[in-house]
Write a protein that binds this DNA or RNA. Structure first.
Length: 780
DNA sequence: TGGAGCGTAATTTTT
DNA sequence: TTACGCTCCA
């Protein structure tokens, strides 16, 4: 008993007051508005553990996240708090799969259904457009897909969309949507939106089911609530309908997915939806230094649709946030890369650095600059493992075996590896399938009866026989199924040949898939091929972002949410890029862009560098770039503006990590005041100065143009009066007495150094200003 | 049937 | 600039 109490107390011990309130709140709705770096995850995990420690069985708790990574992390941390597993921790979509399997026919899907990813869904949309005889000029596949997805996230059925259609293209979209849903149904497939929509409909229409689930899950926790769309909102609402024990955590200021259907109203109006809700605000930031937080706060206060929050921190003020202005995007990249190289040299690990940008296209220049200096980096984006062609091929075989109605997968593999079944033949098969309403799989079986197939019929038949031969793998283990398919489909052989002729090592990739299957079998209690496939479908790039990869990380601002780094570079602060031009158009979401910028800024723990260029290559054309309005909006104390149009020395590396940031408040007030000057270089950011930027005289770049080779180091700093003040140097301070230099960072007129004084600990001083002199050896 | 060559269009993308 | 999708040709 004693130990039980002390365990419970330990869960609360190191929490601040609002955090404790959130953890201890028991029944009824709870909204936790959690600012960046305010210990939200800690609160969620402690709360879950606290519930269990105070008598709630773990299996009665359901936690919902958005990413697998977040779910895994949450599970890990809750288990670390001594809660045996049994708690349900799922992403919304994984929960959707789980519930749909359980609901059976109620969900409108059959056993073994396939989850279509974006690429698959787009194919189906194209088919639907064809069936509806809609030309590209009227509605492009991408637009149709977006409209359908939007409707689904709002839980609108095709007839409902039709009803709402005001304009002709909406009507068209509704028709295509209808056809698309039918195609999915025929293929026994669902898209990501269906996983939510179908569950939401079952919960809405079957109170008995909902009631049962309310008994099973007595406490529901939802993370990143600001990013929920209407379907998710409704699922959450139904799942907590009877007991009202819903705990939502999130931050309206970090809502950056409105363009994908997230509805910020869900969090803004939580108290209206749940009138008895307790609201807790986590406003103390444990992550960032003061200046970073101050800038973030100033910026976000410009937004109107938000909940008021006063972010504060006990962290040191930190170094001023640097705002760098460059001649062009090249210079920006070079300079950032060089700064990283210098500071790595000075002792910073690569993984301390992250570079954020608004659009992926910006990454190229940065990559080149990093490569030139042999800086290890990783991009947290794009087509990772499961999107590789060879992997998708293998998966397509498995998908067809699990779900013979999966035409998209079948179409993919019918001639992979090449077996002489060409486009025309495939088109004939598909027409036949469409006209008869039978799955492609069946048509292939009776290929001889398909009109016009000719000699290809035999090859199609052979392919069909191959699938029949493979069918028994469903009775084996998942990993065996994968390797059997590899061997018998001819994929392995084709990849082997490719390798022998000097191609990429795709073979190793597919073999990695076997490994993944083995790992899956070890992890799961009841491994099945269908479940393995859904897991893969629900795995995203985001899940692979590894903050501790030992590399500099490059990513979009969207990918940065939820992460933090000691040193952050936020590039391309230009009107049209951040905020993005689409957001500047009428009806655009400028506030969302501001939130995006806010998210970027608040990822930084110690140092933040914001940069913009006067000219940037956009789609192969150099364009003049006006500075972002956000520079103007967060302008104020704690910023250091630096203009790199003219040739000037690069700032020297700052000191390294141990005992990291210089403490401004440690300095006498007059020095502290000087240390944080209002502005260093420019009086105003050149907001609205597009023409001015273009008209400004061409200034020299610090970096050589033309051929791309390792950039020579920029000129060394001007003569440094403290050149011989290395670490270890003994100094005499007027008031503090004798001390020792721990680190030193020379800068013209602003040389900072960390000095250790007996009994006082470490101080950061500006040597030019402080009454301090070097002690010569032997003198005292 | 498959590849070369041309035209077009270009945010972000938790699942 | 580049990536893709489509057409046309061997």
């Amino acid at each position: 008993m004693q130990s039980h109490d002390s365990q419970t107390a330990a869960l609360l011990a190191d929490l601040n007051e609002p955090q404790r309130q959130a953890v201890q709140h028991r029944d009824g709705p709870l909204l936790v508005i959690a600012g960046p770096g305010s210990g939200k995850t800690r609160v969620i995990t402690r709360r879950a553990a606290y519930l269990v420690h105070t008598g709630v069985p773990a299996r009665n708790i359901l936690a919902i996240t958005f990413t697998n990574k977040a779910a895994d992390e949450m599970k890990r941390r809750i288990e670390a708090l001594g809660v045996a597993h049994g708690m349900w921790v799922y992403t919304f979509h994984a929960l959707g799969v789980r519930l749909l399997r359980e609901f059976g026919p109620l969900g409108g899907v059959q056993h073994g259904f396939t989850i279509y990813d974006e690429a698959d869904a787009l194919k189906v949309v194209k088919e639907a457009l064809e069936i509806c005889k809609v030309s590209d000029a009227v509605l492009k596949p991408d637009d149709a897909r977006a409209k359908i997805s939007d409707a689904k996230s709002k839980l609108l059925t095709p007839p409902q969309l039709l009803e709402r259609a005001e304009r002709f293209e909406h009507e068209t979209a509704a028709r295509v949507y209808e056809a698309y849903q039918q195609l999915l149904q025929q293929r026994n497939a669902v898209d990501f939106d269906d996983l939510l929509m179908r569950v939401a409909f079952v919960l809405r229409d079957h109170p008995d089911v909902t009631a049962r689930l309310n008994v099973r899950f007595r406490y529901v926790l939802i993370d990143e609530y600001q990013d929920t769309n209407h379907a998710q909102y409704l699922i959450a609402r139904h799942l907590s309908h009877d007991h009202g024990n819903i705990c939502a955590t999130g931050d309206p200021d970090q809502s950056i997915y409105a363009w994908r259907g997230a509805d910020i109203r869900n969090i803004l109006e939580f108290e209206r939806d749940y009138p008895s809700a307790k609201v807790v605000r986590l406003e103390q930031n444990y992550r960032s230094v003061g200046h970073v937080l101050a800038i973030a706060s100033r910026l976000i206060q410009r937004n109107r649709r938000r909940k008021h929050k006063d972010l504060w921190t006990r962290n040191p003020t930190g170094e001023p946030v640097q705002v760098w202005k460059f001649v062009d995007g090249r210079d920006e990249a070079e300079h950032i890369a060089q700064t990283i190289a210098d500071n790595h040299q000075a002792g910073r690990p690569w993984s301390d650095f992250a570079i954020f940008y608004r659009i992926n296209a910006v990454s190229r220049g940065l990559e080149e600059a990093l490569r030139d200096r042999e800086i290890p980096y990783k991009i947290a984006r794009g087509v990772e493992f499961y999107n590789r062609k060879e992997i998708r091929d293998v998966l397509a075989y498995l998908r067809v075996l699990v779900n013979p109605a999966d035409n998209v997968a079948l179409e993919r593999i019918i001639n992979t590896p090449a077996r002489g079944i060409g486009k025309t033949s495939i088109a004939r098969l598909m027409t036949c399938a469409r006209e008869t309403g039978r799955p492609l799989r069946d048509i292939a079986r009776t290929a001889a009866e398909v009109p016009g197939l000719g000699a290809a019929a035999k090859r199609v038949r052979a392919f069909s026989d191959l699938l029949d031969r493979l069918q028994p793998v469903l009775e084996t283990t998942v990993s065996e199924a994968v390797s059997t398919v590899l061997a018998q489909s001819g994929l392995e052989k084709a990849l082997q040949e490719e390798r022998d002729t000097g191609g990429e090592d795709r073979l190793a990739n597919v073999q990695e898939l076997v490994t993944a299957a083995i790992r899956y079998e070890e992890e799961v209690d009841e491994p099945t091929l269908a479940d393995f496939l859904s897991r893969i479908s629900l795995t995203s790039d985001q899940d692979a972002v590894d903050e501790n990869a030992g590399c500099v990380l490059l990513m979009t601002l969207h990918a940065a949410k939820g992460l933090e780094f000691p040193v952050v570079f936020l590039v391309g602060l230009e009107q049209g890029l951040l905020p993005h031009e689409r957001s500047l158009a009428p009806g655009g979401q400028i506030e969302e862009e501001r939130r995006l910028c806010f998210v970027g800024i608040t990822r930084a723990c110690e140092r933040l560098f914001i940069s913009h260029a006067l000219e940037r290559m956009i789609r192969g054309r150099p364009l003049p770039r006006p500075a972002s309005q956000f520079l103007h909006e967060f302008d104020g104390d704690g910023l250091a503006w630096q203009d790199f149009q003219t040739n000037q020395p690069r700032p020297p590396p700052w000191r390294y990590r141990e005992g990291f940031v210089p403490l401004v408040e440690d300095l006498p007030p007059e020095e502290a005041a000087r240390l944080v000057p209002k502005r260093r270089l420019r009086a105003e950011p050149d907001f609205e100065s597009c023409e001015e930027a273009a008209a400004e005289p061409r200034t020299t770049s610090q970096f050589p143009r033309g051929r791309r080779k390792p950039a020579p180091l920029p000129p060394p700093p001007a003569t440094n009066p403290y050149a011989d003040w290395g670490p270890g140097t003994l100094v005499q301070h007027e008031r503090y007495g004798v001390g020792q230099v721990l680190w030193i960072r020379p800068a013209p007129g602003q040389t900072r150094a960390g000095l250790k004084f007996a009994g006082l600990g470490e101080k950061t001083l500006i040597l030019e200003l402080a009454p301090v002199r070097k002690l010569e050896r032997g003198s005292r």
